[in-house]
C-alpha cells in the first residue's frame, strides 16, 4: 500500500489533490496523512507543510524578515516525489 502512493505519483500526468489520491487508494485521508509522513521521514517525499518556504517551518526567518516571515502561509501545501 505504501508503494502505491509512490507509484500513483510517478504515473500521474497532472497534479492530484489529496482527496483524489485518497479516493484512488481507497483509504481514509487521515490514514493517507500517516503514510505520507512515513515517506517524508524516509526521504522519498517532500512536504512543504514540513519544509515551510525557507525550510524553517512556521518560525522561518531570513535577512529581510529577521523577526519571522510574514508571508510564510501564502503558498498552499504541496507534496512531491524526490528522485
Amino acid at each position: 500500500m505504501l508503494y502505491q502512493i509512490l507509484e500513483i505519483l510517478e504515473q500521474a500526468e497532472q497534479p492530484l489533490s489529496l482527496a483524489e489520491l485518497s479516493q484512488r487508494l481507497q483509504i481514509e485521508p487521515s490514514a493517507l496523512e500517516g503514510m505520507i509522513a512515513f515517506w517524508v521521514r524516509k526521504g522519498r517525499l517532500r512536504d512543504t507543510a514540513v519544509l515551510g518556504c525557507g525550510g524553517g517551518g512556521a518560525g522561518c526567518t531570513c535577512h529581510a524578515y529577521p523577526q519571522g516571515c510574514p508571508f510564510r502561509s501564502a503558498g498552499p501545501r504541496m507534496i512531491t516525489l524526490i528522485d
Partner: peptide, 9 residues
C-alpha cells in the same frame, strides 16, 4: 514535469 500532490483544503 514531475507530478505532485496539492492539498486542496
Amino acid at each position: 514535469p514531475t507530478p505532485f500532490v496539492l492539498e486542496l483544503p
